[in-house]
Write a protein that binds this DNA or RNA. Structure first.
Lengths: 109, 109
DNA sequence: TGTTCATATAAGTATATGATTATATAATGA
DNA sequence: TCATTATATAATCATATACTTATATGAACA
């Protein structure tokens, strides 16, 4: 039933922390420790939220050196709905700028 | 914090039953017993979902004779976001048509 | 090889959620 | 007035959720 699918997707997005993660990943891919720093939450808490997002296919991961980078899955069935929801949220650029200012941005080229 | 407000709103919408209620009310105002009939759920279950929606200001009620009719609150801060989410849901007109066919539509003029 | 860093996972816990059953309230109509 | 209908609410219960703490895994590097 389609209402259930959409309902589950909204439930997934219906969490402050996951919303911020999605909103940040919409600007730039991030590794776990960057999100931990930006969101000021414990590493396991962030990991567990990322797992939920990944299990639902909303984000993808790619390992680079010792880091795991997460990015939005633009091919997800509900990517367009998610994008339209993001337009109702504040711009997360400030979080990212502060991360850069602290020299906490991960580089791995 | 705005992320929290949006998160709470999405959590509220992140339930199959409430999504259907909202989707139906977007077509036509309904009383509780019509929703009970359309959604095939117990009356207390429907009442409790309506209360959540009302407590969050998403729906309004108006008493007419022995019925309580619910309608969407178009002035809600997140009404536009809700509308954009509704575009990703199936059209609920079939539910309403079946209700009319059964002669279960409430009239109170 | 052993230590450190980044991440994931498991276990435990408190709270939230969504249903059911039973009951209360309030209007209608015989 | 009494029975019926529509709705709300309370109590209960099983399950889900989101965190914490502790531990495991695995890459980097001295």
């Amino acid at each position: 039933m389609y209402y259930e699918e959409v309902g589950n997707m909204l439930k997934l997005l219906g969490d402050k922390t996951r919303l911020m993660i999605i909103s940040i990943l919409n600007e730039t891919d991030c590794c776990v420790c960057e999100l931990v720093d930006m969101l000021q939450m414990s590493q396991p808490a962030i990991s567990q939220h990322l797992r939920k997002l990944k299990d639902n296919g909303l984000v993808k991961e790619s390992k680079k050196a010792q880091w795991v980078f997460y990015s939005l899955n633009k091919k997800h069935e509900f990517y367009p709905m998610m994008q339209s929801i993001l337009t109702y949220l504040p711009d997360p650029k400030e979080h990212i700028r502060q991360l850069e200012e602290k020299g906490m941005r991960m580089q791995c080229e």
